[in-house]
Amino acid sequence: MKVRFWGVRGSVATPGPAYLRYGGNTTAVEVRTETENRLLIDLGTGVTQLARELMDGEFGRGEGVLPILLTHTHLDHIQGLPFFTPFFVRGNQTRIIGPEPTELSLTETLQNHLNPHYSPLYGLENLAAGVRVETIEDGASVELSGFRVRAAAMPHGGMASLGFRIEADGEALAFIGDVEYPDTGPLSTALELAHGVDLLIHDAMFTDEAYALRRGWGHSPVSDAIAVAESAGAKHLALFHHNPDATDDDVDAIVAWAAKRSRVPVFAASEGPAFSLKALSSKA
């Protein structure tokens, strides 16, 4: 599998010179198989960049196929939806697969995001490609374009966010992008998702010091990301969902701090070219 980070930032996009190396776009992660099947995780602002690349290929001709896993519907994870141009080319087969957010359904929530007060689109029905919205339950598995995907609900402030285990090409990765574990520590369901994966991409929004002041905000301290990677036997750990106040230098410092403590090789997710999980292993 290949992974490309199009958005790694949490909460809100951070343009500006202090965020150029890791990137300022909110969550969007593309996963590809060796046979070039694609899967997208989340619709943060990063997808606007991905869209440009996709439109140069089969998505520009209305021949693209893209399943999109949605972790949850906080704004930083759906803000790119109305600007994801493949949705506007008839013929593209796109599906959004995510959790039921609250008493409102996933479809109702996305409709609410696009309602005419907030968006000139007025609603999902005006995405010309006709996106399908489906829900996935906590613990369910699904086959998508040659990927085997398992979802598990993670506590995230007042609601749940889905974590995913994704398998293809004989490899596995886990994505747990927005999570705050209870005081008792990482959940067994998180460890199961990450069990033996080649790459764990994990929420590391707060330094441990900052976390002490931000308990209940729904995000992890770096040490929890390390703990999950180590306990689950992950081969590599990518710190993810960088704090919007963390400049490139701050993220460098976090990686250096983590590298000293983690038995699992660790790096910070950054916008940039695709990398293969195999290359990650040969590098380590």
Binding site: V12, P15, G24, T45, Q79, F83
Partner: peptide
């Protein structure tokens, strides 16, 4: 100063992406 959505990255450093 930006319309539609924020645009981080090296090509918006001068005019800004917010």
């Amino acid at each position: 100063v930006r319309g539609s959505y924020p645009v981080p990255g090296p090509s918006t450093v001068k005019y800004g992406g917010h």
